[in-house]
Design a protein around this nucleic acid. Structure first.
Lengths: 116, 116
DNA sequence: TAGTTATATAACCGTATGGTTATTGTCAAG
DNA sequence: CTTGACAATAACCATACGGTTATATAACTA
């Protein structure tokens, strides 16, 4: 999975709306385009972005190209965020404890001196 | 919170690296710029994006402007993803059951006719 | 076969992104 | 008060993004 592509794909409201729409079932390009005031090629581009990010699959079905959600990718993104946050929060908790400790015995605008 | 801004901010590897670096403690612009082969103004721009997305806070400390992570925002993004995935996966489970049911009594390339 | 529908592709356009260098404003240190 | 470090801002540039219209391709339909 590519975090760059995944986050980028999710950064656009139209693409998120398409994903939400796909939650109600697979959809062809025309069906997905219908709710938007946007041309079909624009939707096709968005779908290509979503596909590139692994957020949807597309199959060929005669004339049309129905799309389906790929939830594994969403879960992977979620897992990444979750693990990152775990690290970050752990660190911040420790920082907070440290700061509290400092405040108990240090000046307000502490450590004004720092060289290199 | 703004999902557009948040996902957009996370879509850049430099910005994610900055966040990871900040997990080890607050950092000034110079400190954050050090690991990258990139000018200080470039880092400043990234920091502005991160701040705009609510992923970091910046305070003024004499001459420098240390940054700190804001984990609440990460949690909010995570929550959004989580809720979306819940809906999506629930839907897909139901779809699968439906399809299985169809296969038990329908033709292979079912529903070839559809008007509007 | 001719016409229509579904989708993709190409070419274009305005704006945004991500970088640069040069400059400016502030604080800190002598 | 001058000098130097930190950081922001401005101006610029190449490329990417998100949209458009027009055209092409392929599969259905009559």
């Amino acid at each position: 999975m590519n975090l760059d592509a995944a986050f980028f794909a999710l950064a656009d409201p139209t693409r998120r709306a398409i994903l939400a729409r796909l939650a109600q079932g697979d959809g062809t390009v025309m069906e997905l385009a219908e709710p938007f005031e946007m041309s079909q090629p624009a939707i096709s581009k968005h779908l290509k972005v979503l596909e590139g990010a692994g957020l949807i699959d597309r199959r060929v079905e005669g004339n049309r190209r129905p799309c389906r959600l790929r939830t594994e990718t969403v879960r992977e993104i979620e897992d990444w965020l979750s693990s990152q946050r775990a690290v970050w929060e752990g660190r911040l908790d420790r920082m907070e404890a440290y700061i509290n400790q400092m405040n108990l015995r240090g000046p307000k605008h502490g450590e004004p001196k720092r060289k290199k």
